[in-house]
Design a protein around this nucleic acid. Structure first.
Lengths: 326, 326
DNA sequence: TGTAATTAGGTAAACGTTTACCTAAAGATT
DNA sequence: AATCTTTAGGTAAACGTTTACCTAATTACA
């Protein structure tokens, strides 16, 4: 069923049908308008967006590239992105990279070939500029940044301030020996988080001690292993975790060693993913506006697509959420 | 940059470039092949999949309609779907319905207009056949079923057997007064789960007592409220929860009332979502092969797209995972 | 040496839209 | 009565591919 089939049945020209369907019908009599619309309805005609895209050179589709939707952080991000995209009438193609640069590159290629109008990327850790080199579509980097001179949009949080605030909170709660478990991947985000930890220590005249730091990746396992390694040599009374997943692993390990949280060791995470409040103890964390970041990413991307000259960087606010783990 | 631009630069015809790019190059000399490929490379040409789709009448794109990616169950499902789709060279358009029939209908329309090759739906609770009526693309119903006579694919689990097994486990653990907290939405899934609970009771000559049942929806809140309502009038020693989210809420409510899990009340969930093992206590649950269901849904859908005559129904196995809550 | 087969590539229609521009008839204006 | 406007709609090119079919030159063969 195509527009030409409809035109044929109605006994009008293709152009007429197209105009009616697109509301460009100032010069169409109400009679033919009704007739055509009726036929469209009866035949269950659904316009071919592919053909339209070919002609109009846009697809009303966006691409979202993230490491893994199964990760609560990214599923919330994805939800924000999809909601906003939908609000603007865009569809969303979802891509999971598993932190694999090759997959990231491949997906970017596919998305471009499918002519999406824009792409939102939460970059693979370690991803570098090369990936973006010959990409023609507008891009917004979401949370996980990439250093580049290309005019890309950026939605982020002040990561350094997040860990800084987290550690300050621990100190305020009386901790004097604070560990740090986080990711060691070479990207802005991880670097900034480590920096915040160190800054807060310095601010309080505490010594930065490498022995109190365990860096691997943003996973539950890292938290679990991190605690095991750190706790056997040091007497920590507080741990700042690079994200909530790490905190979950850390708490699990502490419990198994019969170390009480928060009495013996206080734990703080970063993100405030959906389950953090259901943990035992409920996790104190630096809440990131995850959903909002996704939402804002689309807003920015659409500004870029429509070439409105907006600010290409938006930093959203984080906030301490105190629960029972500190 | 188009195929015709490449052809022009190379001094060959459009057809030649197309053939080379598609490997139909038996009749192309190695010299021109190289020349064309070089130009393609240098110009950073990316084929226009839109134009290709228009001609070939497929898009290599699938649609996924689920209630909410932020729900751990669906994010795992989505991941399975995306992985499998990717394996077959398909992209995935993600749609969240929020259990809203209108949104579901709208998305189905959009997906058809974008000419996806197939759609996978975890239907809105209460969704009915009307939705599928004039849908021309192959459809696979994933987990959340819809009663219909259309020849749709189905991937599911034996829901009745899930709750049956769950309750049997509770009984084996010594429970004699078993509550049931689940969803009351009118769809196969919820009905089957309730039926399994009742059957297990009957099997053990226990009376089915409506007072021990609280039905609302598959959310944490339902578990929390359900426990509050049930526990004040009855002396339960076991609760079968319709899914893990409900179990999370139930455990939280019990803790607040200083009722010990599992000593005072044993809790079992269904699903085994990613966090269930990190709860306190770690949740005993009926593990569903969530990721695999997503994966299988795509396999089935692609069989349907390619008109291989496969079995349209696939029931996957569940499994009891005993942890500390029972 | 004449013909058949092979090699290397070209032509043009088709996919389903949109849209700039055209046209014919009717009504309005002088 | 002749011209201008407006109304209602039509024509055909274009978007970027794919592909059935064509062609010209070369090679193989009897």
């Amino acid at each position: 069923m195509s527009i030409s089939r409809i035109a044929e049945i109605a006994g009008v020209s293709i152009a007429t049908v197209s105009k009616i369907l697109n509301g460009k019908d100032q010069a169409i009599s109400e009679a033919t308008r009704q007739k055509v619309l009726e036929i469209v309805e009866k035949e269950g005609y659904i316009p071919n967006a592919i053909a339209k895209s070919l002609k109009k050179n846009y697809t009303k589709t966006l691409g979202l590239i993230i490491p893994d939707v199964m990760n609560l952080f990214f599923s919330e991000l994805a939800r924000g992105v999809e909601d906003s995209a939908d609000k603007f009438g865009y569809s969303l193609i979802l891509c999971n990279t598993d932190n694999n640069t090759e997959k990231e590159k491949k997906y970017l290629q596919v998305l471009q070939s499918k002519r999406v109008d824009g792409v939102i990327i939460s970059a693979v850790e370690n991803s570098d500029e090369a990936i973006l080199r010959n990409c023609m579509t507008p891009i917004v980097l979401l949370d996980r940044d990439i250093k580049t001179h290309k005019p890309v949009g950026r939605i982020k949080v002040d990561n350094e301030k997040c860990t800084y605030d987290a550690v300050m909170h621990l100190i305020k709660k009386g901790c004097t020996n604070i560990g740090f478990i986080s990711s060691n991947t070479i990207n802005t985000l991880s670097e900034e988080r480590l920096k915040g930890y160190i800054k807060a220590l310095e601010k309080n005249k505490m010594l930065y001690n490498e022995e109190l730091v365990y860096l691997k990746d943003y996973s539950v396992e890292t938290g679990y292993i991190g605690v095991s390694k750190l706790i056997e040599k040091n007497k920590l009374d507080g741990i700042c975790c690079g994200n909530d997943l790490i905190a979950i692993g850390a708490i699990k390990a502490l419990k198994e060693k019969n170390i009480h949280v928060p009495n013996d060791v206080k734990i703080i995470g970063i993100d405030d993913i959906l389950i953090s409040s259901y943990l035992d103890p409920p996790l104190t964390t630096i809440k990131q506006p995850i959903y909002d970041m996704g939402f804002e990413a689309v807003n920015l991307l659409i500004d870029m697509i429509q070439k409105r000259g907006t600010d290409l960087l938006k930093v959203l606010d984080h906030k301490l959420v105190e629960r029972m783990s500190t």
